[in-house]
Simulated scan of single mutants.
Amino acid sequence: MLEVAILNVIPGKEAEFETAFRRASAIISSMNGYISHQLQRCVENSSRYILLVNWQTLEAHTVGFRGSPQYQEWKQLLHHFYNPFPTVEHYEVVLEQKALPIV
């Protein structure tokens, strides 16, 4: 299951946000049901990021992580950077295809 969060960071706070996110990465990666994550910055709008988190189940994110004491620390580190508050959605794979190796 893929969590997709669109993060609009207050302009001028990008470097501070990225530093805080590096610290917050240790929190999320320690959670039960966590698989992997990526933070990507938008090329056209340097204040916009996308967070992609792979979880084993929807509940690992919505109940396990969000209901944990670690989530409170995550919020303290990151939530004051956002304006507006992020849109978070969850996706499941319908089709996956990879490039064929070049021989």
Rank of each mutant, 00 (worst) to 15 (best):
Met1Asp: 02
Leu2Trp: 05
Leu2Met: 08
Leu2Phe: 09
Glu3Leu: 06
Val4Asp: 03
Val4His: 12
Ile6Val: 09
Ile6Gly: 07
Leu7Cys: 12
Leu7Pro: 01
Asn8Glu: 14
Asn8Gln: 12
Asn8Met: 06
Ile10Phe: 04
Ile10Leu: 05
Pro11Leu: 05
Gly12Asn: 04
Gly12Cys: 05
Gly12Glu: 10
Gly12Thr: 08
Glu14Gly: 00
Ala15Trp: 01
Ala15Phe: 02
Ala15Lys: 11
Ala15Gln: 04
Glu16Gln: 14
Glu18Ile: 01
Thr19Trp: 00
Phe21Trp: 05
Arg22Gly: 05
Arg23Thr: 15
Arg23Gly: 00
Arg23Phe: 08
Ala24Glu: 02
Ser25Asn: 10
Ser25Ala: 15
Ala26Asn: 15
Ile27Lys: 12
Ile28Asp: 07
Ile28Gly: 04
Ser29Gly: 04
Ser29Asn: 03
Ser29Tyr: 02
Ser30Lys: 02
Ser30Ala: 11
Ser30Cys: 05
Met31Gln: 15
Met31Tyr: 02
Met31Asn: 07
Met31Ser: 08
Gly33Thr: 05
Gly33Met: 01
His37Gln: 11
His37Val: 11
Gln38Ala: 13
Gln40Phe: 03
Gln40Lys: 09
Gln40Asn: 08
Arg41Ala: 05
Arg41Gln: 15
Val43Arg: 15
Val43His: 13
Glu44Gly: 15
Glu44Asp: 14
Asn45Phe: 04
Ser46Trp: 00
Ser47Ile: 04
Ser47Leu: 06
Ser47Val: 01
Ser47His: 15
Ser47Cys: 11
Ser47Thr: 09
Ser47Tyr: 10
Arg48Phe: 01
Tyr49Asn: 01
Tyr49Ile: 07
Tyr49Val: 00
Ile50Gln: 10
Ile50Thr: 14
Leu51Gly: 07
Leu51Thr: 06
Leu52Tyr: 12
Leu52Ile: 09
Asn54Lys: 15
Asn54Tyr: 03
Trp55Ala: 10
Gln56Cys: 03
Thr57Met: 11
Thr57Gln: 11
Thr57Asn: 12
Leu58Gly: 10
Glu59Met: 07
Ala60Thr: 06
His61Gly: 04
Val63Phe: 06
Gly64Ala: 09
Phe65Lys: 04
Phe65Trp: 10
Arg66Phe: 13
Gly67Leu: 09
Gly67Glu: 06
Pro69Leu: 08
Pro69Met: 09
Gln70Pro: 06
Tyr71Asn: 11
Gln72Phe: 03
Glu73Trp: 01
Trp74Asn: 12
Lys75Gln: 13
Gln76Ala: 15
Gln76Phe: 00
Leu77Pro: 02
Leu77Arg: 03
Leu78Cys: 07
His79Pro: 02
Tyr82Gly: 07
Phe85Asp: 13
Thr87Arg: 09
Thr87Glu: 13
Thr87Met: 12
Val88Gln: 03
Glu89Phe: 00
Glu89Pro: 00
His90Asp: 07
His90Ala: 09
His90Cys: 10
Tyr91Gln: 07
Tyr91Ile: 00
Tyr91Ala: 07
Glu92Asn: 14
Val93Trp: 00
Leu95Met: 11
Glu96Arg: 12
Gln97Phe: 07
Gln97Ser: 12
Ala99Met: 12
Ala99His: 11
Pro101Tyr: 04
Ile102Gln: 14
